[in-house]
Structures are given as structure tokens and as C-alpha cells.
Design a protein around this nucleic acid. Sequence first.
DNA 1: AAGTCGTACTAAATCGTTTTAGCTGTGCTA
DNA 2: TAGCACAGCTAAAACGATTTAGTACGACTT
Lengths: 353, 353
Amino acid sequence: MANRSTKKEDGAPTLKKGSVSLKDLAAHLDLSPTTLSWVLNDAPAASSIPQETKDRIHAAAAEFNYRPNYLARSLRVQKTNTIGVIVPELSDGYSAMVLNGVESALSTAEYLYLTGSHLHKEDLLQELPQLLIERQVEGIIAVDTPIRFEPSLPVVNVSGHDKIDGVTNVVLNHQHAAELGIGHLYNLGHRRIAVIKGQEFSSDTKVRFETIRAAAAKRGVPIDSKITVQLQGDSPSPEVGYSAIKSLLASGEEFTAVFAFNDVSAIGAIRALTEMGLRVPEDVSVLGFDDVYAAAFHNPALTTIRQPLFEMGSIAAKSLLERLANGADGNVPKEVSVEPTIIVRQSTARISR
Amino acid sequence: MANRSTKKEDGAPTLKKGSVSLKDLAAHLDLSPTTLSWVLNDAPAASSIPQETKDRIHAAAAEFNYRPNYLARSLRVQKTNTIGVIVPELSDGYSAMVLNGVESALSTAEYLYLTGSHLHKEDLLQELPQLLIERQVEGIIAVDTPIRFEPSLPVVNVSGHDKIDGVTNVVLNHQHAAELGIGHLYNLGHRRIAVIKGQEFSSDTKVRFETIRAAAAKRGVPIDSKITVQLQGDSPSPEVGYSAIKSLLASGEEFTAVFAFNDVSAIGAIRALTEMGLRVPEDVSVLGFDDVYAAAFHNPALTTIRQPLFEMGSIAAKSLLERLANGADGNVPKEVSVEPTIIVRQSTARISR
DNA sequence: AAGTCGTACTAAATCGTTTTAGCTGTGCTA
DNA sequence: TAGCACAGCTAAAACGATTTAGTACGACTT
């Protein structure tokens, strides 16, 4: 039997609920913090502690709702089980889906994450990573975000294209995507294909356009710069696609199809076209990109190049976790690529002529 | 002039870049951590430190890219400048917009936030808050989430309806919203109004339906339970609205308008109606709720009751920050309410008969 | 009867800061 | 010439955990 002597004169040091420290709990039990730590963490050293003591400890921990202070623990063990995630903004559909993927991969590993949006502001692009690093995140996942800092920790960039030491890019196979898109339109008979380029700040803008251009040229229908427009404005919304197509229509140039930078701009484009009395897809085909939620239920339902955004997020997270687990053994993959698929719905059709 | 003696024999203890501690830096400068801390934090006590020393310290901090370890600081000052945010899921448009509002309010206060999605799973509803509390968040913002834990810290619940001590609910003026919606449809001549109820897990489901029922009854056109359907399935997507209306149509009951639980289900409803050869709004009017991004550019553009989601997020954050700054002085507001507006677009029209 | 082993623990260092309480030397007053 | 203020620092405690290195005691060997 336990021969605990009541060391101190206080019989029951009433612990305030809500924030008991290990020391408090230990004092209450007349044991040392060490013992409690061993037992509560199931440390190897706890093997010599008799079951009865263990039970007492667990019971008290439950009774006072003891939760270890993660700050203290992390400081001591030099591990925070936390990563940082940087996105342009949350409500554009794109980042949110990637984040879902990230979270699903993290949760099984008991990691949490801190988030920040940079809204494409240069100062935030510099500042955010520092804020996260100060908070001792173990790594950073950036989504559609240029890396403006020296990566002093593992970084994974979803849709990143810059080759930077220590950064793994998770990217779509853009060449394949362009082939799928242009191939689809070409096979429907389209030869005058207008292209909506992304904003300058989107990581994919350049590659997307180059690969589309190459795919079109290959088929002998080079992209005409007169029917190429670039999205303006600093956030992704249907409005910018709408304006882009409006200005294109104003130019009077002919085209039978539009290959949009993303679904959101495709939706704006459709609005602009129908407002001008052009039917989609009868008069003009519109091809989107991404396959966000809204695409399937739009009217007309969007034909689009699907990016596996959820998977890209979870691949990013898994890749980061793997690097964190294995330590920096040099062999950081520069790039992981995923495949697009084309989802044919109602916004594209055979050319009517 | 400074008469620093080279205490130690090592002339230049080469500091490894990337993670210098205050102690390292202090050793390098032959000063104590205390002095550096004072200077770098602009503490009052730093007034007695000569400018030259201050300059040396700042220069060294910059040179070695010194960043204070936030874990250690937070542990010492008992303040983490971090809150937790709990959402059902990120990619439903709703939570993301609220989060944007939260973030904008937080960033000016130099707070960051940890996020978690519970996907309406009971275990996560219990677990997530604990994970956040362990990590010493100062408060929690829950979005459309039932509170399943004892609030031992300040909590703000966006769209919460349970009155719980220590929890501030940020809610829409639902009565007004129902008046706007039913009033609009009634004025357009609609008398047979179908209602799509939300899923059981949505906080707003009950109030929304009750207020709609009351507003309709008041006008002498009581809601008929035969043309009331409830969303099924465990995530918000157009599919569930689609199925709901499909089943309603199958019942053969007559109706001239649909008041949907949210925009997403309204979009699904429109799809179901048009598939059955009914035109929106000529044959059936469809009224949405929320005014998410997709609403304005849908075809037809959605008439909807707008919730100021961004504001609700920033109000939630501001209210939480205020409580954190002022300490727990008891007077916690039980409820803060915001006003809806009706955005009339193309999905509703005067009854054609 | 001394040495060894195992049980059941505890003391103290540590993580990286901040903060309280000093300490040392110089210049000036009384 | 002792006393005192002030400038310019430093030592050590503290935050709340984990972890290393013991200690005290009984039982068992040799």
C-alpha cells in the first residue's frame, strides 16, 4: 500500500479548474511533476511506476481537466506539430479546396496549421512567412504564391513554378492540360480560339498560356494575339472575366471559342457573351479551368479542365510531413506533378457552320 | 567609448544563420540577453542604454536575422496573440467569406489564428476545441457550429443560436430576412411558396424556417408542409438542392415559387426545375439565401437574401478581441445582430397568370 | 555483511524569452 | 571625502512542460 505522508499541512489545495499546471497537479497528488509527466505521456520510464499510482494520476488529470500547455511542451521538445499555410485569399474556391486537402492530410498526423492571406500585396508576401516562422511552424505550404523569402525551413508550393532550393512544387501537368483543352476545342471544329490569360500575379499564368500556345500551334491553328485578353483587377471574380470578354467583343475580332484561365472567369465570360446576344455553346464555346464547385451547376454547365485541387493539397501536406519526419536528407523533390482531366459538360459544342 | 573586454577567448563565435537565439546573439555582442531584450522590445528600461549600443544590437539582429521565438515569449508573457477558428468546412463559400472577415479584423491586431474543420462529426466537435485550447489560443470563433464544450475561454459563435454563458452569438436578423423574402415573393403574386429547409446540422435551419413560416402566415398564405422539403446529405452542395426539388416535383404538388435555404441549394433547385422543362423565373421563381460569390453570376442571376458574411466575421473577431483586451468583466454580450438585405436579380418574377 | 539489483520515485537542468532586482563605476554634491 | 544619483549594464527567476541523472530503500545474492 502507498505510504504517502502528508508532507504539507494543507489537506486539499483546491485547484482552480480551467488551467491546472503539471506542478499544481503534482502538488495536489504529493508527487513530482516528473512522475506525472512520465505517466501521462506513457514514457518508457513509467514502467517502474505501480499501476495504482498511475491510476491516481490519470484520475486526477481527468478530474481537473488537465491539458498540457503546448507552448511549454513545444519549447522543450523543439517541435510544434504546426505548419503555416499561405494563400492569396480564402474565398476564391481554389485555395479553399486545396486547404481542404491539406487539412485532411494533416489531421491524421495530429498537426494543426496557421493561415494567412496575402491578397497579392508585396508587403504581406514578405511579412507573413516571418510571422509564421516566429511562431515556430515546422514548415510552410504556399498556395499559388510567389516565394519572397529565404526558405530556412521546408516549403511546399502548390502551383509554384520557380525552382528554389528547399522548395517542392506541386504542379499540374500543364502541357497535358493544354493538350486536353485545345484538343477538345479543335476536335469540335474550332479554329479561332480566344484565350483569356490570367492575371500577372497568378503563378500559373505564364505556363498556362505557353502550353496552350504550343498545343494550338502544333495543330496549325496558332493563337492570335488579337483575340487574347488578360484578366485585370487584383482579385479573382467573375467580373474580371466579364470585362475581359466585353473588351474583346468591342474589338470586333471574330472567334468561335474561348479558353478561359479559370472557371470563375469563364462564368463571367458567359455572362458577357449572352448579354451581347451570343448563345453558349451554340454561337461560342467556353472552356473553363479548375472545376470548382460552381462549374458543374452553372447554366450552362461548364466544360472544364479539372485540376485535382484536393489531392494537390493533400499531396503537398504529405510531402511536407515526410520531409519533416525524415529530416533534411538533401533529396528534396523539386517537383511533384499531377494529371488534369477534361470534364465535358454543356458550355462547349461542335462549331455550327 | 565602449571599453568592452573580450571576456572569452573566442574572437568571433560564428553563429549559424537561420535560428539564432537571444543568448547566442548576446554572447556574440558580449552583452547580456537582458540588454538585448530591452533594446529590441523598446522597453522603458532601455532608456539608459546609449544609442551606440542600441545600434550595435539592432545591426547584429538584422545581420543574423534574429527572430524571437514566439513560443518562449508567449510562455513568459502568458499571451499568444492567437485565436482558434472552428468551421464546418472551408470550401462551402459561406465559411470562407466569414473567415475573410475574421482575418481582416485580426491582422490589424497582429493576431494569427489556427483553424480546424469538423465536417459536422460529433467527435471532432468535441476534440477540436481541446486541441486549440492546448495550444493556448486566447479565444475561439466558431462558425455555424454547435458548441459542445464548456467555454473556459471567450467564444464567439457566428450564426449560433444557443444561449450559453461566455458565448457571444453573431446572428442575422432572421425575422427581417424572412419578411424580406416572403414579402418579395408575396408582392410578386406568389401564394404557393415551396420551402427548402436546411439540414438538421445547420445552426440556422430552425430559426430560418420558423421565421419564414411566421412571415407567410402573417400574410395569410401559410406554408404548406406538403411543399416543404428538407435538404439531405452531410455537406452543402448544389446536389442536395437538386434532389430536394426533384423529390418535390415527383410528389406532383403545385407551387409557383421556391424559397431555398441557401444559394447553393437554390442553384441545385434551378437545375432540377429546368431539367423538368420549367423555366426560371417565368414558370417558377427561385429565391436564394446568403449571396455567395456564385449567386450574382449564375444564370439566371440569383435573387437572394444577402447575409453580410464578411462583416459577420469581422464583427465576431472584433468582439472577441475586445473581450480579450478588456479582460473578463462580466458584461459579455449574448447576441449581436446584423441586418440582411434583399438583392433582386433574375431568378424571381411576377407570377404569370 | 557487503554488494548488487530493481522499484519508486525526485532534483535540477533545459527550451528561449521577459522581468525583477541588483551591481559597478563615475561624477557631483555637501 | 563620504554619500548619492545616475548611467549602463548583469544575474537569476519565471513561464510550464520534458528529460537526465540521481537517490532511498528493500530484497536478494555471494
